[in-house]
């Protein structure tokens, strides 16, 4: 018994080097949870924007602020990552791309595509002065 009880357990997630597909998987979950938490706020904005002309201009003014823009870029990045990772999972469901080498290539592809979308969003919303 003591032999099994004293076995070293190495489960420090911050020190295990995760394969890239594991990073895609956990980011898919984290982005999903964060977007769920943002839902009530978004529904509230929808409701306020439709309630009255005053409510509409309040929402427009809020979305025009720097913090909202930063928040929107983060949301777009999470959404893009969640979407691309989801498409990857859907393809994996059909037994395509299951080998280790292909799966890590598609995992990198997910990260890169999401980063490109986030970069475009950051450029458009933070630097070019476009409004939401």
């Amino acid at each position: 018994m003591s032999l099994t009880e004293n076995r070293p357990v190495f489960l420090n997630l911050f020190r295990i080097r995760q394969p890239v597909s594991a990073v895609v998987s956990i980011l898919h979950r984290i982005s999903g949870i964060l977007m769920v938490l943002a839902l009530p706020g978004l529904i509230y904005l929808l409701q306020t924007s439709l309630s009255s002309p005053e409510g509409f201009s309040q929402v427009v003014a809020l979305l025009d602020g720097q913090i909202a823009r930063l928040f929107a870029v983060l949301m777009i990045w999470m959404l893009a990552h969640h979407l691309f990772a989801g498409i990857r999972f859907l393809i994996l469901d059909f037994d395509v791309g299951l080998t280790k080498s292909v799966s890590s290539k598609t995992a990198w592809f997910v990260h890169v595509c999401a980063a490109v979308v986030a970069a475009i969003a950051a450029w458009a919303l933070l630097f070019s002065g476009a409004s939401l």
């Binding site: 979950r29 999903g32 949870i33 977007m35 769920v36 839902l39 529904i43």
Partner: peptide, 16 residues
């Protein structure tokens, strides 16, 4: 869209 979003969120959050 909202219904699809909430169904999707429910299955996802339930798994997590």
């Amino acid at each position: 869209f909202i219904f699809a979003l909430l169904l999707h969120a429910w299955v996802g959050i339930r798994d997590v």
